[in-house]
């Protein structure tokens, strides 16, 4: 099944943040409410939360978000040691780590299982591209496409598909359901969208319908 994921950028002191090319100036909502809407009403398959502040993770807030969220949660941001990651994994299903973050991902995988560790690849011109791992999943994001809604870096996804067997989460740049279909065609197993769900009429179910029409298995919204 192809997963349709909502990305939520947070600054615990301010709220849900709109990201654009990794600048985070605009507050657009309240995290718990956002998690409720995305998981309960929009029925995404998973929620990815990034704390953009570089501060240590706000575990209390994460706990409140996860408890209100009806789908699995992955969290990234401010994780520099195994202990912190394992504390987060008592609350969320997965942690997201920069793929260059030392060997701690191995220690985390040993304690919590490989499925709990998502390696994050950040694309920018001149960025070292690689995928050491093994990670449970690989999330690929792009600094210049972040929040721009003009499409994923399909070429990078195609390249990554060749070098890793892990599920790939496409992130950064989705502006339409067609962008999501293109990413899946290139080899992505999941599509994460932030700005598109916040600022356009396109809902996660629109993405699911487009993927379904293109012949991919998805979890279509339950009739109420």
């Amino acid at each position: 099944m192809i997963r349709v994921i909502a990305t939520m950028l947070i600054d615990p002191a301010r709220g849900v943040i709109k990201g654009q090319q990794f600048q985070h100036d605009r507050v657009i909502g309240e995290p718990i409410q956002w998690a409720r809407v995305m998981s309960r009403i929009r029925e995404v398959d998973e929620l990815v939360i990034f704390d953009v502040t570089h501060n240590p993770p706000d575990l209390g807030l994460l706990e409140r978000i996860a408890a209100e969220c009806w789908v699995p949660v992955a969290y990234g941001g401010g994780i520099h040691d195994t202990g912190t990651a394992l504390r987060i994994l008592k609350v969320t299903e997965k942690v997201v780590l920069n793929w260059k973050t030392g060997p701690i991902w191995q220690e985390i995988a040993d304690s919590a299982g490989l499925q709990a560790v998502v390696g994050c690849i950040d694309l920018y011109p001149g960025a070292p591209i690689g995928c050491p791992g093994p990670f449970g999943e690989v999330l690929v994001q792009s600094r210049f496409r972040d929040g721009m809604m003009n499409g994923y870096d399909v070429e990078a996804i195609t390249g990554l598909r060749v070098v890793t067997d892990a599920p790939i989460i496409a992130s950064s740049g989705a502006g339409s359901p067609a962008d999501c279909v293109a990413a899946v065609r290139a080899g992505a197993d999941a599509v994460a969208c932030g700005a598109m769900y916040a600022f356009s009429d396109t809902t996660p179910n629109d993405v699911k319908r487009a993927l379904h029409a293109a012949g991919y298995p998805v979890r279509l919204m339950e009739a109420v």
């Binding site: 998981s39 309960r40 029925e43 398959d45 009806w70 789908v71 699995p72 299903e93 979890r219 919204m221 339950e222 109420v224």
Partner: peptide
């Protein structure tokens, strides 16, 4: 069921 969206809650 607690992490299976609306279907799980149902």
């Amino acid at each position: 069921p607690e992490k299976s969206g609306r279907a799980g809650m149902k």
